[in-house]
Simulated scan of single mutants.
Amino acid sequence: MRIRIITCYDVYNAGASLQAYALMQYLKDCGHEVKIIDYKPDYLSRHYSLKAVNNPEYDRAGIREIYLLVKMPGRIKKLFSKRKYRFDAFRKNALELTDTTYRTCEELKNIEEADLYLAGSDQIWNPIFPNGKDPAFFLQFTEKGRRASYAASFAVDALKEEDRQRMKEWLKSFDAVSVREQTGAALVKQMGLQSQRNCDPVFLLKQCQWKKILPETETNKKYVLLYDFDKNCVAEEIAEKISKKTKTEIWSVFKTEICDKVCADIGPLEFVNLILNAEAVVSNSFHATVFAIIFHKEFFVIERKERINTRVNDLLKVFGVEDRKMDHVKKLQTAKKINWQRIEFILQKERKEAEEYLAKITGEKKNE
């Protein structure tokens, strides 16, 4: 079957890149001809742009020019950074994209015909961001072939009425709807539509499959990985507590005073490697938590300041590890030891349900 996937795959976010790869690779392993649609609307193409004005306060004549002049040296430096190079290399070497790049939903109407158009995964339907309002991510550019989603995420637990009505009209055209969170399934139900909850695509690939694509890394250091977007004092306190208890260093993705090493230049594969080799993971990253589960790493989750915590809350609930969510360092004392045998049992169940759903929408028969 010829399958075309639309997702936010090239936004210089490790989780976004890895979920795109995982869904593509899983379907390829099933024998399908799969490509990710190279969809690059303006709002997803401003990363590393020299001319972007990210704050509307400065997007005024006279002010804009001064803003860009001040920002220019730092932006040029980032343009040639290892981080950008590693993300670009992953996109080039790991992802199979359509030959044509599309900038608008209108342009997508000229896309080559496919048997199945697939939307997902990750936060493609998040109404807080422009992609959640873009008809392209709801497959409104075609009436040919089958249309379905896989583990698409709203990332919120409530929708404005205008968003609900718009999404309802778009989703009515789908042959099948799969969402990533139970809260997402509830939102679809409120629209009067049916959906199925499925795990994030990275769970479709097993430990050994992820390890196979990772670059070799040499380190004799033991460390706790801190991946904190918000400079959360609770996250830092927990990392320090674990580091002291286990006599390990603290490695952080973002610069912080408590860390022994900053790992700011990582790409998608380096991100996975950091988790694989960590003694424990303290984060408010959804995909850092996902890979900690895959690799059986001790993990602790801190809430984000943004209103997108339903993703990780639902994830912890699925695996029965809600006590891993921390809002105070004292909660470390009440966190139960992770039962990895039970985690693996749940993961196998989640994977089986995902495989059955994907087999159904691709017309493939799964062997029992």
Rank of each mutant, 00 (worst) to 15 (best):
N55Y: 10
E322P: 11
T7M: 07
E237N: 14
D260I: 10
E353F: 00
N55A: 07
R304G: 09
E169W: 03
K28V: 08
A14L: 06
F154I: 03
A151F: 01
F271Y: 10
I36C: 04
S49D: 07
P130Y: 06
F129C: 06
V281G: 07
A94T: 04
D42A: 09
K109Q: 12
P268M: 14
L274I: 05
Y227S: 05
I124G: 01
P56S: 06
F319G: 08
V312L: 08
E33R: 14
A155R: 05
A114K: 00
K330P: 01
P215N: 15
L316E: 11
L18Y: 00
K77V: 12
R180S: 02
K71P: 02
Y9Q: 05
I238E: 00
A239I: 14
E237S: 15
N131P: 01
K305C: 05
D29A: 14
K28F: 03
P215H: 10
L95D: 03
Y39H: 04
F345C: 07
A136P: 13
A264S: 15
Q194C: 08
E240H: 02
I76K: 14
N13W: 09
D200W: 02
K331N: 11
K28L: 08
E161K: 12
R2Q: 11
V177P: 02
L108C: 03
N93Q: 13
Y26T: 04
E350D: 06
F295C: 02
A359G: 13
E298M: 10
E33I: 08
H32E: 11
Q123S: 05
L316P: 12
R83Y: 04
Q209K: 12
E270Q: 14
T219E: 11
I275Y: 02
L204K: 01
H47D: 14
T217M: 13
F345A: 09
K144R: 13
H32S: 11
G145K: 04
N13Y: 08
A292Y: 03
A152W: 03
C199H: 00
F87S: 06
C105H: 04
D38T: 00
D327G: 10
E216L: 15
P130D: 08
K330S: 15
H47I: 03
Y227Q: 02
A354C: 11
F295N: 00
G132T: 01
K247Q: 15
I258V: 15
I250F: 01
D265N: 11
D134A: 04
P135L: 02
A239E: 12
P268N: 11
C263E: 12
